[in-house]
Write a protein that binds this DNA or RNA. Sequence first.
DNA 1: CTGAATCCGATTGGATACTG
DNA 2: CAGTATCCAATCGGATTCAG
Lengths: 115, 115
Amino acid sequence: MIKNFSTIPAGIACPMVSFVNLISGKWAIPILYRMIVIDEPVRFSDLQRAVHPITQKELTRQLRQFESRGLVTRQVFAEVPPRVEYQITALGKSLRPTLDSLAEWMLENEGRLGD
Amino acid sequence: MIKNFSTIPAGIACPMVSFVNLISGKWAIPILYRMIVIDEPVRFSDLQRAVHPITQKELTRQLRQFESRGLVTRQVFAEVPPRVEYQITALGKSLRPTLDSLAEWMLENEGRLGD
DNA sequence: CTGAATCCGATTGGATACTG
DNA sequence: CAGTATCCAATCGGATTCAG
């Protein structure tokens, strides 16, 4: 017998919609997780090397988005050659346990997935 | 002082890339989480009502994808009117702790996010 | 009821060239 | 080095129509 499905509050899934809005796209999670693991200021070019093969354009876009959300900070040094360092914030770091869990699940179950 | 970034194995972020490939898109996580919470066979139309305002096309596409990955099952009943029931698999359910953690983080931190 | 098919606009994301 | 600007292809995703 199937329970009356409509009795389940529609709001349950809403955090998930918010989450997808927060970190959607091909590179968002990989970038964020990498920065969490690093947990130190990191230069743009180093980050690009670490998260490859991401393009400059994509990396820039995602970093700007994270910055506006308060997940990472951006510090510009008035030098030649220019140096810009990005770093994960406390808020960003608070995502670590969740993302760890996610990575672990993937490592454990990748082999079981179809296709 | 900045650690030499290139010493960090590039493989660390790979599970994340796999994860994004598994459940990317606007509706994938909301659908999956909803089915996990239900944990019972659910009809197509009920699911569409629960995860709104998703279109038929999108719901169909995502369900087919999940089916091919082994995250949900699809059972067709030869009736008039036709009935099709989808249900989360054990593999799909094993994602629950991770997705719970994700939902909780979102509920706790939604207010702290910029923009 | 459960789709498949089609059309369409919006968004994503890669490649490349250029700049301070 | 750290971007910006431009072009382009592919995908995403909504609206609508049709079919078994």
